[in-house]
Amino acid sequence: MANPLYQKHIISISDLSREELELVVHTAAELKRHPRNDLLKDRVVASCFFEASTRTRLSFETAVQRLGGSVIGFADAGNTSLAKKGETLADSVRIITSYVDAYVMRHPRDGAARLAAECSTKPVINAGDGANQHPTQTLLDLFTLHETQGRLDGLKVAFVGDLKYGRTVHSLVQALSLFGCRFYFIAPPALALPDYLYEELDERHIEYSDHEDIEEVVPELDILYMTRVQKERFEETEFHQVKSRFVLTADTLAHARPNLRVLHPLPRVDEIEIGVDQTPYAYYFQQAENGVYARQALLALVLNETL
């Protein structure tokens, strides 16, 4: 029987069921333990970045090559004739997807990936569409949570920083709510989680609480998920006040449980002090590495009927 992701577009995390999320997580773990260089043999994957995102692009392209596939594409559409000739995105997608077996795309416009899927007969994988979705970030986060905790069900997860604009946080909260996790939200009022997400959590009867301070919740947590608070969102003096309250130091973690892991989608600026890197709780660099395994898992599942 074909795996449920075979030949499927991966556009939005909300398109994936709990079972499909688990399948990706388990496949990523398997590929990390037992690397396979044959799963994309003789396959060509397009990696089309209409806006630059070096980390995501390198992670995808590494994933393709590790699995034995090859990559075509571009790192920034500004340098291509696509941008200069004024072709519609729809037409570009139709043509490029006719060359390849799968199409990975990053685009600055919200909804570009859904549009690409409508124009493509090959699977489209969204590598970020504007401020909308970035499903492979969520998949690598889920894989990392599972890897560090041995499960996804019922985890106690705190999110810190910019919970209003961070799509990483929104998607992960939505995905984890399928696993009955308990959430702690720690953000300045101006950057609180959007109302629609609170409503969704209420509808799903998910337990959560809001906090002003990281330290008070640390002893309860399995996962502390940090995000960057962007300076542009605040006035200068306000920013310094806010920043100091949402910076993680090694001292803050004094009463952490031994299984606690600190994650961050990176790049970090100064919301995690360097001192935290040496603690056994720091896991953000492994998290970034896991991006390659999660993307390998997704590509392998989308392009192979069975593994």
Partner: peptide, 29 residues
């Protein structure tokens, strides 16, 4: 939203929640 710059038909799913109607764009979600 991509629907402003590409030749596509706009599409919204309609949901009623606590008596308030919300329209969700198929593209930008």
């Amino acid at each position: 939203c991509i629907s402003h710059v590409e030749p596509v038909t706009s599409h919204f799913s309609v949901r009623s929640r606590h008596g308030e109607i919300r329209l969700k764009c198929k593209y930008c979600e």
